[in-house]
């Protein structure tokens, strides 16, 4: 794969000179940023969520704090959402 990289770069550069537009539009880059942030949020919530379910199973009084802690990683995706309005 590495051997084909220079060739691929050439093709990309040529395309650039022909059409005059970048390989990745700003809005596409923003979409990738938001998507990665969503994956990160999911990963963080996986651990917190399973711990919260465990705590609630032992004592249902923990439901509220469990919910709050599970929701905290949502801030990641909310902040990433800003990217869309910036570009």
């Amino acid at each position: 794969m590495i051997e084909t990289l220079p060739e691929l770069a050439n093709v990309v550069l040529q395309g650039d000179t022909v059409t005059g537009s970048p390989a990745l539009e700003p809005s596409a880059a923003a979409a990738i940023a938001v998507g990665l942030a969503a994956i990160a949020t999911g990963y963080a919530q996986r651990g917190i969520g399973s711990a919260a379910v465990g705590a609630v199973a032992e004592d249902s009084d923990n439901l509220i704090s469990g919910l709050i802690f599970t929701a905290i990683p949502e801030t990641l995706i909310i902040i990433a959402f800003v990217t869309i309005f910036v570009v």
């Binding site: 399973s50 711990a51 919260a52 379910v53 465990g54 705590a55 199973a57 032992e58």
Partner: peptide, 13 residues
Amino acid sequence: SNPEYVNARVRSR
């Protein structure tokens, strides 16, 4: 493994 879940339950017990 699911240590988060086990840890939460075990700590409560």
